[in-house]
Computed example of a mutant assay.
Amino acid sequence: MQYDEAKQKFIQAWGTLGSAWGINKAMGQIHALLLISEEPLSTEEVMEELHISRGNANMNIRALMDWGIVHKEFKPGDRKEYFKADKDVLELARQVSRERRRREIEPVMRVLEDVQQVNEGDQKSIEHFKKVTGDLGEFTQQVDGALDKFIRSDKNWFFQVLLKLMR
């Protein structure tokens, strides 16, 4: 397989995978391009490589920066902004986990805690509702705790745990 073919295949696959993280395909493709690029790229270079509009490139680069997985760089003597992705895969996974935790798990935990305050209505229905939402809350807290451990982990701890799970 030629490099250009492999590069395009990776960019397309990473874009599709991005939707599992809660990001759109263009964001995933831009991230893939920046991930495999040896040097930071300008918006124009991203546009040219992926055949996307300036608005699409700008909007998605900003979103990737909001996720904390792409960073801006300046080159001395050049007015253009350049962008790069961190290459540490474990750190990428931790950052995506942090962001998904903030965007998804924490709001659900707040809602589950809030709905436990229900006190008006049919008592039997309230008890059932509190039981189910309480169980969901406990499960969500356990997931949050595991995610927190992963986010705070170092490489050695993570791989030791992973190897134990695989045995």
Rank of each mutant, 00 (worst) to 15 (best):
I126D: 00
L136T: 02
P40N: 06
L64W: 00
R62A: 09
G77T: 13
D148M: 13
D148K: 12
Q116I: 08
D144N: 14
D66Y: 06
R62H: 05
L136I: 09
G137I: 07
T43F: 02
R79S: 14
M166D: 10
D4C: 05
E39F: 12
P76V: 13
H51A: 14
L136H: 10
D154R: 04
K75N: 04
S125E: 09
G18K: 02
S19I: 11
E127T: 14
M109Y: 06
K155S: 14
K75D: 00
P40G: 05
L41F: 01
Q12K: 10
E99P: 02
E127R: 08
G68I: 05
L92C: 04
M27W: 00
K7F: 09
K164M: 03
K75S: 08
A26D: 11
H128I: 14
M166C: 14
Y3I: 10
L90D: 09
R103F: 08
T133F: 10
L17G: 12
N60A: 03
R103T: 05
Q116T: 08
F74G: 12
Q117A: 11
V108K: 13
G15C: 06
V70G: 05
R167G: 14
R62N: 14
V89A: 10
Q8C: 05
L165V: 13
A20I: 09
G121M: 01
P76E: 15
R79D: 14
I52A: 02
E49W: 04
S153M: 13
L162A: 12
E39M: 10
A85Y: 00
A20K: 08
V89W: 07
A146Q: 13
K164V: 00
I52D: 00
H31S: 02
I105V: 14
E73A: 11
D154M: 07
L17M: 13
N119L: 00
M27P: 01
I11A: 03
V89E: 10
S153Q: 01
G121F: 05
L17I: 09
R103C: 11
A6Y: 15
K149I: 11
Q141L: 06
A20D: 15
E38W: 03
L147A: 11
P40F: 05
G28E: 06
